[in-house]
Write a protein that binds this DNA or RNA. Structure first.
Lengths: 250, 250
DNA sequence: AAAAACGTGTCAATATCTAGAACATAAGTT
DNA sequence: AACTTATGTTCTAGATATTGACACGTTTTT
């Protein structure tokens, strides 16, 4: 095992992450305490980050994150450009089901929502994309999990957090569920993360057949009959397949 | 001058940035060459970045950036809470013009409307919050485009979709338009997306002078005299500048 | 007016990172 | 098929960049 890490880089990244999580500015001392670093070490890291534009200091000497990380993130997002490719399928799904439609990608042991079409029922506010949920509970997560199971399985051992009484919490149950999802090509979650919420999702594949994203619908269980669910399952599968072939054509 | 930088951290950040700019995966050797670093040094930095989740390696041993940076960026964006900060300026603009006011951000090659104040007039345009429009047609889009032109220009080549006979469809015309917008600090769209709709918008800058959003007014052309338009242009510019300074104060 | 806490500098000691060579494996070339 | 030249990865000695403790001037709290 060669895998030692560059501690300076590690610490620097921790600093950025800490600042991004902070919703106001923060001083060196407090930051150092939070991260369990020395004050002078933290100070030096901050100077470096300022030079690179990731951090700024306000007139009260408080440090905070800039938009640089956001810009880098935008660049990464743009190059994938999944949202643009998916939006028509998502809108179609939305029009058919009337429920919230999500496009998400893998992010560690979570699903990260990178695009969303609001439910036509909820009139409400702009919900920032970028939310996430545990991979083993929600449909978009399970769809991604099933088709990346070789690399993810071991990491989930001991990490099957429980959220409702429906949550899958044993590897045996998960193995079965994954097998089922791979066979059927769709993942269904009946209240495994939020008790009264049901979600249905299917994987989207890249040109080299990696499951890079999943597209799915999420709705209050109360809205749906068993018949509706069957129909949505079918529609979601079709949307995902259609999106996959769009991607492969590029 | 105490300000020396942590070179390891600097190099690590350069690696992330390089990977973010790359639109396909890249190997250690090539990356090392591009960044003028040693292969082993680059390798080590990549390992560290992988552990922190910023980088992944595909089955062909190619390295590429993950969505982690994007997620960090989202967190920063959220805490900025642009909609909340803008609402008073937007309401002011609305009260002056009586037309629909939009706040939007970049989303691929589109503008995404993240906040809106409805027109008070009887004849009005309607674009829902969360909706979007092509970046090269509407004013909010053009304002963002002009001030992010280095990164966006090449992606627009061959993607200048036409919507009306006023739509800009050649890169030559776009280059000129962008230059004009940058000079004047405002973008105007006279029916380039919807024939009878006129829109006017100006960019909002973050503390490190990135154009992160734009604020604008949209109205049926029939509502406005040339004089009205001039007045709105002025007012929109002011509102955007005011919003920019609010943001810089944070 | 003292005391505590803050951001910022300094500097020697050493733990950290670096460069370079060496390895295994893959891709190209003759 | 052999040879050549890529590639990604591992190893280690050794230089040096990074570190933490301490010091300093300010601001805030007691």
């Amino acid at each position: 095992m060669t895998g030692r890490v560059d501690s300076t880089l590690s610490k620097g990244l921790s600093v950025i992450e800490a600042l991004a999580a902070e919703d106001k500015g923060i001083g060196v001392s407090e930051l150092a305490r939070n991260l369990d670093l020395t004050k002078s070490n933290t100070f030096r890291l901050l100077q470096t980050l300022i030079i690179h534009g990731y951090v700024k200091q306000d007139q009260n000497k408080q440090y905070s994150a800039t938009m640089k990380a956001w810009k880098i993130g935008q660049m990464i997002m743009e190059k994938l450009d999944l949202p643009r490719l998916s939006i028509s399928q998502m809108q179609y799904l939305s029009s058919i089901t009337g429920e919230a439609v999500y496009l998400s990608v893998l992010d560690g042991l979570s699903t990260l929502y990178i695009e969303k079409v609001e439910s036509t029922k909820a009139i409400r506010t702009y919900t920032p994309k970028g939310g996430n949920a545990p991979i083993h509970c929600v449909a978009t997560g399970k769809a991604l999990l099933a088709f990346n199971y070789e690399t993810l399985r071991e990491k989930l051992i001991g990490n099957l957090g429980s959220y409702t009484d429906k949550t899958i919490t044993t590897m045996e149950a998960l193995d079965l569920e994954v097998a089922k999802i791979k066979e059927q090509g769709v993942a269904v979650d009946r209240g495994e993360y939020r008790a009264e919420v049901l979600s249905i999702a299917a994987p989207v594949f890249s040109s080299n057949n990696e499951a890079i994203a999943s597209i799915g619908v999420s709705a209050p269980a109360i809205n749906l009959t068993e018949e509706d669910i069957e129909k949505i399952i079918h529609t979601v599968k079709q949307a995902a397949q259609s999106l996959t072939s769009t991607i492969k054509d590029i």
